[in-house]
Simulated assay, not measured.
Amino acid sequence: MVSKIEEEISVREEFVLCGKVETQVIKCGPWTDLINDQNVNRPKALIFVIPDPNAQEIKDTYGLRGQIEHKIAFLRTHVPKDMKLIFIGHSLGCYIILQILKHAPELPVIHSFLLFPTIERIAETPNGRIVTPLVSWFRYAFYAITYSVLKPCPDIVKSWLISIVFQVINLKTEFPLTNVFQPFCLVNIVYLAAQEMRNIMKRDDEIIKEHLSKMTFYYGTIDRWCPTQYYEDIKKDFPEGDIRLCQKNIPHAFVLRFSQDLAEMIAAWVKDNLSKIEVMTKDTSPCSQDLCQ
């Protein structure tokens, strides 16, 4: 069954200009232009995945606020207004989802899945207490070392190093990840992390309350970025919400070893929520189960 799905569903990498920034988009499915393609087989829902990290010009694109504006701009520019949306966020992506719901209330969001959500008090978490001083006090030293060591390093050497790392952790990817060792990318990661530690403090209960019926939270039991105390707090404040605690000891960085487990779990959740499309649309024809990511 798995091999059949892999043969039928195409996955490809594209780059689009969004907020005057070249943006990588990984698409799953045969569709190329959702806005201009009016084919009857066009999907009725779009799954928009926001990992742990548009026509307007965006200031501070690689900062926390800029990343939020970038995602909103992408959805407004490249996705049809009547396209129903399912959000899936991981870590910081969950915070971005909350901000999208807050600042773009016109988007027709069916459901949001927030995995291992770092949506509050990041600097106070076990990992946050370690990372905060590093990205705050030693950020510029890291910049200097990164550029002096990696800038002159040939891409072939970077690719070889990445392949060795991936073999050690037994991780497979369909696309080259040489950007991981690009100084520009590493510097922006640290820059964004510094803003996360400083700015993500209080949980936005107002937006959670407004969209609670269309949200699923998934917390980990061994997550050093989001301790179980945060799960207990939100569960206490929103007892009627769909707030779950992982029982499989899956770590925060699940993509390294548990990507298949999470994929199967999320697929089941999405399938349960697809019925909402028929309720929200005037189209009386059977809901297509084709999804575009």
Rank of each mutant, 00 (worst) to 15 (best):
L134A: 02
I169T: 00
Q167P: 02
F175Y: 07
M215C: 12
F217G: 07
I222V: 14
W225F: 14
Q229L: 12
F181R: 00
L177Y: 15
I145P: 01
T173E: 14
N188W: 10
I156R: 02
S148E: 04
I119F: 12
F138V: 06
M201I: 15
H211W: 15
L161F: 06
L177C: 08
M215S: 11
P126R: 01
F184I: 13
V190G: 11
R224S: 08
V180R: 09
T216Q: 13
I156C: 01
P183M: 09
T146F: 08
N127S: 07
R224G: 02
F181K: 01
V149F: 08
N179Q: 09
R203P: 09
T118L: 05
S148C: 08
F116G: 10
C226Q: 07
R198N: 05
I156H: 02
I169Q: 01
I122F: 08
K214G: 03
Q182F: 10
L177P: 03
T178M: 12
K202H: 12
V135I: 06
I164M: 14
E124N: 09
S213F: 06
F142W: 09
D204V: 08
L186P: 10
P154A: 00
V187W: 11
Q195P: 02
T173F: 13
W225R: 01
D223F: 00
V165K: 12
L171G: 04
I208H: 05
A193H: 04
R139V: 08
Y140M: 12
I222G: 10
K158W: 01
S163I: 00
K214M: 09
E196A: 04
L186A: 15
E120L: 00
V190A: 11
S163Y: 03
M197D: 03
Y230D: 14
L134T: 05
A193R: 11
F166M: 08
V180C: 12
E206A: 14
R121P: 11
Y140L: 10
P154W: 04
P133H: 08
V131W: 14
R224E: 14
I130N: 14
L134M: 08
Y219N: 01
G128N: 12
P152M: 00
T146I: 13
E206T: 13
P126T: 00
S136C: 06
T125G: 05
C153N: 01
V165W: 08
E210M: 15
V157I: 11
Y140F: 07
T216M: 07
A194T: 13
L161M: 05
N170S: 07
Y143F: 11
F217D: 13
P126M: 07
P117V: 03
Y147D: 11
P152F: 03
K172S: 15
P176L: 05
G220S: 07
E124M: 11
D223E: 00
P154D: 04
T146K: 06
F175S: 11
Q167M: 09
I164G: 05
D155F: 02
T118V: 04
W225D: 03
V157T: 05
E210N: 10
P227I: 01
E232D: 15
C226E: 02
A144K: 06
C185W: 10
R129F: 00
A193F: 12
D205L: 10
A141C: 13
V149A: 10
I207N: 14
Y218I: 09
V190H: 09
Y218H: 02
I145F: 12
K202Q: 15
T228S: 13
V168R: 06
F217W: 08
D205A: 13
E124W: 06
S148H: 06
D223P: 06
R198L: 12
